[in-house]
Computed example of a mutant assay.
Amino acid sequence: MRVFFDRELDTVATFWRVYRRDGIMLAFTSHDRDLTFNGIAHRAAPGMVPAAIRLTADLNEDSAEVQGALSHATIREKDLAAGLFDHAAIEIGAVDWELLDSHVIYSGRLGRIEDDRRSFTAELRSAKRQLDEDLVPRTSPTCRALFCGPGCGVSAAAVTTTQSLAGIDLDRNTILFDGIDPSDFVDGQLRFLDGPQSGVSFGIISADVNGLVLDRQLVDGTPIGTRVELREGCDHTLTTCASRFANAVNFRGEPFLPGNDLLTRYGQPSG
């Protein structure tokens, strides 16, 4: 394997690949011309460089950061704002721009992205971040299971429907559909199948007479009639689990367990 930085002058450039959750992969290199290796074309983007990469042999999380100018055509400000790069998988490595030998140094996922309209800074989270997750479930009055996920038992296909957009209000950040009960989709998810935000997933935070209120900003140019995939939501209460989904047997919570305030209650005289 090629040993990098073993000489005073080295023909080494940085490369990084971004795997977005909508299936799009972007690849760049800090070299001044495009490089193709491992069957992947890497676009020249010398303005984007890793600011710092720290790798450890222990269980502490590896950290990295990448900075760059918003100048490349494939990284657009509106895509960052729309969340297309949120939690995308990423690889960073070194490549010999003459021999095209390469080695991945860091892999993880994109975390927080800060954009000041001139440049952006992206926090990278390594796979060691999963070691910080609490694997022991804690008691809670609501269900701990991810809706339609492991332990829930409700089929995602049974609560997912495809609808055509009947109305959109950019000022209220709401969308409207005909023939559905909006309240069923609160805390649910929405994904555009067409239009400028195709493939982008939204959370539904509330519903009213104006439609469904989304958790991220809609963009202009989405036409009426755009196909949208809607998945119902769940408030994780036992009542909803039993009455709407007939799924109380899989409820992962303790709704009748006394809380910590039981320890501070005073006894009350009878009568």
Rank of each mutant, 00 (worst) to 15 (best):
P223N: 07
P223S: 10
P223A: 11
P223C: 12
I224W: 05
I224S: 01
I224F: 02
I224G: 00
I224L: 13
I224K: 07
I224C: 02
G225W: 05
T226R: 06
T226V: 10
T226N: 01
T226Y: 06
T226M: 07
R227Q: 11
R227V: 09
R227E: 12
R227M: 11
R227Y: 07
R227L: 15
R227P: 00
V228C: 12
V228E: 05
V228L: 13
V228Q: 07
V228F: 11
E229H: 08
L230G: 12
L230E: 10
L230K: 15
R231V: 14
R231N: 09
R231L: 13
E232R: 14
E232H: 06
E232V: 15
G233A: 14
G233D: 06
G233M: 12
G233H: 07
C234S: 11
C234K: 12
C234M: 14
C234N: 11
C234L: 15
C234F: 14
C234R: 14
C234G: 11
D235A: 15
D235Q: 12
D235K: 15
D235N: 15
D235E: 13
D235M: 11
T237K: 10
T237V: 13
L238R: 11
L238G: 03
L238S: 07
T239H: 03
T240P: 00
T240V: 08
T240A: 08
C241D: 05
C241Y: 01
C241E: 04
A242V: 03
A242G: 02
S243W: 02
R244Q: 04
R244V: 08
R244P: 00
R244Y: 02
F245E: 02
F245I: 03
F245T: 02
A246G: 00
A246K: 02
A246N: 01
N247T: 04
N247L: 09
N247E: 06
A248Y: 03
A248G: 05
A248F: 03
A248L: 07
A248S: 10
V249H: 04
V249N: 04
N250Q: 09
N250K: 09
N250C: 05
N250I: 09
F251C: 03
F251K: 03
F251W: 10
F251Y: 06
R252M: 15
R252V: 10
R252Q: 15
G253M: 14
G253T: 06
G253F: 06
G253D: 10
G253N: 12
G253C: 11
E254W: 13
E254V: 10
E254S: 11
E254R: 11
E254F: 15
E254N: 11
P255V: 03
P255D: 00
P255M: 00
P255T: 02
P255R: 00
P255A: 00
